[in-house]
Design a protein around this nucleic acid. Sequence first.
RNA 1: GCGAAAGUGGCGGAAUUGGUAGACGCGCUGGAUUUAGGAUCCAGUGGGGCAACCCGUGGGAGUUCGAGUCUCCCCUUUCGCACCA
Length: 869
Amino acid sequence: MAIRPYIPGEVEPRVQERWARENAFRAEEKAGVEKFYCLSMLPYPSGALHMGHVRNYTIGDVISRYHRMRGRNVLQPMGWDAFGLPAENAAIKHRTAPARWTYSNIEHMRGQLQRLGFAYDWSREVTTCRPEYYRWEQQMFTRLMRLGLAYRRDAEVNWDPVDQTVLANEQVVDGRGWRSGAPVERKSIPQWFLKITDYAEELLQGLDELEGWPESVKTMQRNWIGRSEGAEFEMAVCDRDGVTDPAGRAIRVFTTRPDTSFGMTYAVLAPEHPLVTEVTSDGQREAVESFVEQARRATEEDRLAVEGSLEKRGVFTGAYLLNPFTQQPVPLYLADYVLMGYGTGAIMAVPGQDQRDWDFAECHGLPIIRTVAPPDGWEGEAYLQDGPAINSEWLDGLQVVEAKERATQWLVDQGLGERKVNYRLRDWGVSRQRYWGCPIPVIYCKDCGAVPVPDEDLPVVLPEDVSFMGVQSPIKADPDWRRTTCPECGAAAERETDTFDTFMESSWYYARYCCPDADAQLDERADYWLPIDQYVGGIEHAILHLMYFRFYHKLMRDAGMVEADEPATRLLCQGMVVADTFYRDDEDGHQQWINPADVEVERDARGKPVGAQLRADGQAVQFGGVEKMSKSKNNGVDPQRLVEKFGADTVRLFSVSDSPPHQSLEWSESGVEGSSRFLRRLWSQVMAHVETGAGEPLDAAALNGEQREIRRLVHDTIAKVSDDISRRYTFNTAIAAVMELCNHLSRFDGRDGPSRAVLQEAWLAVVRLLAPITPHVCEELWSELGGEGPLYAAAWPEADEAARERSRVTLVVQVNGKLRARLEVEPGATKEEAFEQAKAIENVQRHLDGKSIRKVILVPDRLLNIVVG
RNA sequence: GCGAAAGUGGCGGAAUUGGUAGACGCGCUGGAUUUAGGAUCCAGUGGGGCAACCCGUGGGAGUUCGAGUCUCCCCUUUCGCACCA
């Protein structure tokens, strides 16, 4: 009897054709059915899928298919984050248009995704560079302009003086332009911002409700928002004797430690503070101007070099401020450790209770006063913990919390200041001086200023048929595109030529999938599907994307487009895909990285690696450790090659079998071969079973002990796999459990009717348990087994609790916590019964011999521990 | 510096509520099959003794009848933030 061989290259296309023919994964809004929206972060169409994509999308697909089998109405869409810088770079390099390059990449990658058999509803595909998508984003922006939630102000960019263009941060390499090599300058130009800071408090509070989000992501977002409570107050400018400035000038400072104000020994302005010139004395003017200039020119590297170090640069302004608590003057300095962008750009300095102030005071010979008593034996440096206040008149003796409260209240009562909450979070700068992005829908008129493009004139379409002249954005270079008329007064006017940050498109695509053809940004279908029940993506998006997307969702909520407060209830961040790296040193001492697929590893008799050679020449190569797959380390693996060699199911299986989703996955060719081997074995076992026959209908009551044991294993496995997939997200242990079951089934070869029935039930279960992970081979085996209907629509198996009951259980017998024997007992055996039987075991007896029994502990049905002394 | 996570065989990892450490897979060893290689199948595989038994989850202490799991101290690694007053 010849069993049909397993050929993934034939099975998979056949099964995929069926899915397509039957519209298997088309999602429709259905009343009365529990919906499940499962979303994987959409890819940038860079040209080809990499292993990170494959892993991400396999995880999402496993969850989707599981919930579909559980009877939920599942939506799993896919789309393209199609705007972005790489398309411009490719356009310059290959002399093509970014749009053409992008669309052709999308074609190719869509084919790759389809070859992997992901259960997407392709009818909802969204491509963010299409005007029918971005017009709604433009409309949202003009609405935000009218609400004052979008505004324009000057902000710094990286300016390449040779190419005469703005550079993205990633285009700045070692402080130089990536193409010109010229030192990058800081330049201030007007740019658009979204007022995310208005939502800072809600974005922070909302995290507490997101129980299905990883704690690490929430912590990162909390830190990023960086809420701190304190007080803001004014200090009058004065001379060294404390005589206040006749012009009545004052400096506002923010502090989280108003309780330490009596320890203020100086104050500091950021170099960019607007009052610097005004307050600087003539004697200090030269020194101050040179310091400001030096700070202005400081590059990112300069900043990093001194950040956090003891070196604190600064200069005296010649002015003093009057400490309202003591009525004493303190010298006013300029220092670059104070940032203009946070608080008021000015601080009171308390070296005794702040390490940065301490370092500055040490550098500049300023006095240090402690206002919180450190514990005995405290040596040097600022003291930041709790303790009783000292040297602080009416605060003395109070603990920090109480002292803060009193000091703040005093400022309020005196009319000098108020309570203040500051956030580290900054408004979101959305202007990019790039071509391949969504045009910012604004018209500049000499008389009317910045005018939003009226809804009826949207979208402002980005021309796609362009050629790059050098590096300049084609729409900036094209006066015809810019030229327009003012929507308000009709006078000649110019369009904005900047485009949006691409995070804008990825901030709302998830909602557009719900109604991709709506003649509005969203329609009522959005509220059917939202919020997302499961979002899957990389941890690298923990802060920016996941913050912007929460923010944008709240903007849409406040515009009445959606009801939910948060876009996604559960979030899973998958780990990186990593691989071995190998290299050789060339003559110049540079490392030549060699792809692991071309390397043969040599091992000793224990299996321990002892060396590695390049297959091509048999010569040794060096092991460079395990690293994230990357071009620079040449350790990437092309999923396309793997799919061609092993089939989609094997690639999918391996990408979730070797570690839990949130951990990094170590790629290994032999691991992939192991996955392939398992599927081939599964195939031949099921086919052999089908050949032998399914037997009679299952009669659970008529089974013998061995058959019952197999059934018990089957139903235990069903329970475990269900829990692993739905609650724990540990697909690796789910797969291990199924493999273990298959190993048992292969050893059980009953030919009688009841045995066949038990096996039939078992294989039908196995095929369904694996269906979310390896859907093609399972679909085929399901139909071979005579399963009813298509597997993608089959019901998830239920664990039969009666079948899981045991007639005997194995107790572990310990003496003083050490394993000495195993004991078969009735389930529910009492301590006394178990102890009596255990005493009879020789090996137990030997350890009890001559000793008195102190205590006997029973963990029912698991363990008996006899404590002797 | 601050914050978070982690450290278990030769390797990836398992042990879910404090209860048999090493599931499952890879690698390795031996055998079968094969003209051979590959593939496949069977058996073994933490270390030391090769028997009883002892040792073993980064290191050290502690709690407990019992600790990979809990507490404290230390070491290491990864990630995030990084002068945010």
